[in-house]
Amino acid sequence: MQDINGETDMNDYDIVLRARMEGRLTAKDYIDGLITDFMELHGDRLYGDDRAVIGGIGFLEDMPVTVIGIEKGKDTAGRIEHNFGSANPEGYRKALRLMKQAEKFKRPVLCLVDTAGAFCGIEAEEHGQGRAIADNLYEMSALRTPVLSILIGEGGSGGALALSHADRIWMMKDAYFSVVSPESCANILWKDTGKAPMAAEALMLTAEKLHAAGLIDRVIEDNDMKKLSDDIYRQFKGLTTIDPDVLIEDRYQKFRKAGY
């Protein structure tokens, strides 16, 4: 397992670039590191099986959990197989199916988010990319089982949000979560992608800034899997004792106060 280097003078755009770097841990690595007996489950039961989203069941220590991750792939073949971690509507619908299944069997849900954004394509649009994301936000807001989302790399806009309507949102210290990519932002506002670093600085997209603003709950300093596993386990232990009605109300209030 690689270690996050102790670089201290990274600016916000460096963090964005770092979050995209090849060789980073992907969702699969986290699943391997955290979950024993992981069994992958496929398909959205509506149209297809989107390989950008992997999901399944397994044990976190002794606790059965549902895990859903956006997978970017490791090498070229893997990246192509997983569509570079950009999900189609089928991916979001598979995720929602697995979350509903988790709700039925009272399993907590762990989401591992790493995407530049939802896929932009003709089929993605015509299969209802907007509706798929909206449905996840809508249904996750009332899911009667705990959800923890961890941003492990890129948190690209609505495509990342669709797996982040959670009770707790954690972020790796060198991940980002943004309404728009700094390049697009710079291009739209200043017609100059060269100003991406300035956009990155202004967008409030780093784990530390988002934590300070109260939009996320925890910054994970390093990827020590044992420690992360313990933290997730403890979090789930706590959340599963909460009455589902209270859990949903707390989740509602968590997003309700955004900006207010």
Partner: peptide
């Protein structure tokens, strides 16, 4: 865009 993640979270808030 000018409100960063606060604006993205409005999607969650309204949907809920």
């Amino acid at each position: 865009m000018q409100e960063g993640m606060i604006s993205l979270f409005q999607m969650s808030k309204v949907s809920a």
